[in-house]
Amino acid sequence: MVQRIGKQTWVIDEPCFIKETATVVGPDEYEGPLGHVFDDHIDDLYAGQSSWEKAEQRLVQKAVSQCIKKAGISEAEVDLYAAGDLMSQLATSYYAASQLPFPFLGAFSACATSMQLVALTAMSVSQRMVNHALISTSSHYGVAEKQFRLPIEHVKQRPKTAMKTVTGAGAALISSTPSPIAVQSFTFGRVIDWKVKDPTDLGQAMAPAAFSTIDDHLQAMGESIDDYDAIVTGDLSMFGSTQLQRLFRERGVEKMDLKHIDCGQLIYGSGSKTFAGGSGAACCPVVTFSSLFDHLRTGKYRRIFVVATGAIVNRSHLQQGETIPCVAHGVVFARNEALEEGRGDG
């Protein structure tokens, strides 16, 4: 069962687990500090295809097949497939899903899609509507640049605050069979608009959304940040992270900088000079599903709160003078201690 606590937080009573995950990344991400933890990578942005759009489909297919293979189940056992990406009409996900025999749900909340999908599928798994639900999210640097910004070879001098869209895809299998990582609770965020207009500064635009989701979650659960080993945000980058930590300091939470981890900063390392960090729908899942879940499996972390942040950057709306609305969805993942002690009761 799923129980509602507070206005926008739900707790999953019936255990619900992340059975297996798979991540595929692009060349730049593979060369980054986390390169060794990803399951697979592509050598160039085209992935052997003729265009970026096709390359992104390839990424999704690779991640999905890898995930099913690692989980050791047959394709017929997957009851539901939910996916999202940044392209308009979720084209990548739909094309990739057309090669797969699963019932499909597409969802979009920009870069926050991954955690939205985890929460939605965890809901249906815990209600025992389905046994195994597969999710995937993807993004591609070339596709995103083409759709949201300028052609990739076009001259551009970005400010320090600009972020780079992560090339990659992350897939996860959410299932009712006991596994090392459990999904405990989730919070759906409200859409926050702090009147930021600059599309090269999404980190600071999204920080208030992340703040509101984390704050609402902690209040609803009656917890403090000390109850978590890490508060993970999706793609706030350097400047968004400082903004988030400052917002918490205003709230009287001083130690946020010790607990806070940002996937966008992890993926390219802090030494990257050209970008403030990674962004994109794949940024949060590839880091969370690989590195952070490994920490949960080995016991370095016991409980983490992952908040994926998304900003709606629509060319037409921005050019008509509108601001950037942002949303953040958070999910609590915990190490399944019961399984660890050998009495997994599912």
Partner: peptide, 9 residues
Amino acid sequence: VAIMFRAKG
């Protein structure tokens, strides 16, 4: 140029 090269990224 567009015929001969493809964008590298």
